[in-house]
């Protein structure tokens, strides 16, 4: 079971005061001298928290930088908000003034990879121009075909080459051929079906749930209630289906290490709102999860 000492909780709270990754030396200096953690204990403790996935780290030559997963999540939300205005080249989200500018390069890369894996953002070749683009909307094959068809038309017309001579009898044939040609030419493999995810269970699932709870609210380690809707969204990459997530939570609750809180006025909820909650199929709809302390 994940249990955090008072010292660890103190460090997490202290790290939460920074709204950007902080160098280890600066972080150590920011801690009160008479606080519960001695400076010499800071790095070993942070390393422990790192193993529990409660802090993030970047090591570059002599410089070590720390930040909280919660900060990463905040930056991710800012990035998504920016991409909602339109696709951007990867270089456009890495600059100093971009949402991810405060993260070190390693952290930036790992965050982008995670967001892509969770299918919260997508990277695909630019429809017009060169290079790749990041977007919150999955790529539309139609956009590419349109460009290719127009290009082909533009080439074939001056040469007076008929479609039949090119082995294309119908417009559908033309689309199929163009599609195939385009797929073969792509630098990035695009799959229209998400890759099957192995749903974690047992201790792995519990660790993920606890880490997610503390990521959403550092007070969760002291028993604060965490919204199950927010937790579901955070862990969607690990538990993609409703049944997977609900099952993992209910199994964990059986051990009496966490408590689930029901919604008392269920009849006031819409079906969509109910779906966001965790249900046990016995008309209990759970809104929150709390660590028993």
């Amino acid at each position: 079971m994940l249990s955090l000492s008072e010292e660890a909780a103190f460090l997490l709270r202290a790290l939460g005061q920074f709204n950007a990754p902080v160098a280890a030396s600066r972080f150590e200096k920011s801690l009160p001298k008479l606080g519960p953690v001695k400076r010499s204990e800071v790095r070993p403790l942070l390393d422990r928290l790192l193993k529990q996935d409660l802090v993030r780290i970047d090591r570059q030559s002599n410089k070590v930088t720390y930040w909280l997963p919660a900060l990463e999540e905040k930056l991710a939300e800012q990035l998504i908000a920016l991409l909602q205005q339109g696709p951007l080249a990867p270089s456009g989200v890495e600059g100093k003034n971009s949402p991810l500018g405060s993260l070190p390069p390693g952290g930036r890369k790992s965050l982008l990879n995670r967001l892509k894996k969770e299918r919260r953002i997508f990277e695909f070749p630019a429809v017009k121009g060169t290079g790749n683009r990041l977007s919150v909307i999955p790529p539309e094959i139609q956009d590419y075909l349109q460009g290719m068809i127009e290009g082909l038309f533009a080439k074939l017309r001056p040469l007076s080459v008929a479609f039949e001579e090119a082995g294309v009898h119908t417009k559908e044939d033309f689309y199929l051929q163009a599609h195939q040609m385009w797929l073969n030419s792509l630098p990035v493999k695009i799959s229209t079906m998400p890759e099957p995810v192995e749903v974690p269970s047992g201790e792995v699932a519990e660790r993920l749930i606890l880490a997610g709870m503390t990521q959403l609210d550092s007070a969760a380690i002291n028993g604060a209630l965490v919204s199950l809707t927010k937790l579901r969204n955070l862990l969607r990459a690990h538990f993609p289906g409703k049944v997977d997530f609900d099952g993992a939570i209910l199994t964990f609750a059986e051990q009496e290490r966490i408590a689930l809180h029901r919604h008392v006025h269920v009849s006031t909820l819409s079906q969509a709102e109910k779906d966001d909650l965790v249900t046990d199929g016995r008309d209990n709809y759970f809104i929150g999860i709390a660590l028993r302390v």
Partner: peptide, 10 residues
């Protein structure tokens, strides 16, 4: 503080 009153364990 925020105090959470949990359902009962056995």
């Amino acid at each position: 503080s925020v105090l959470t009153l949990n359902p009962l364990i056995r």
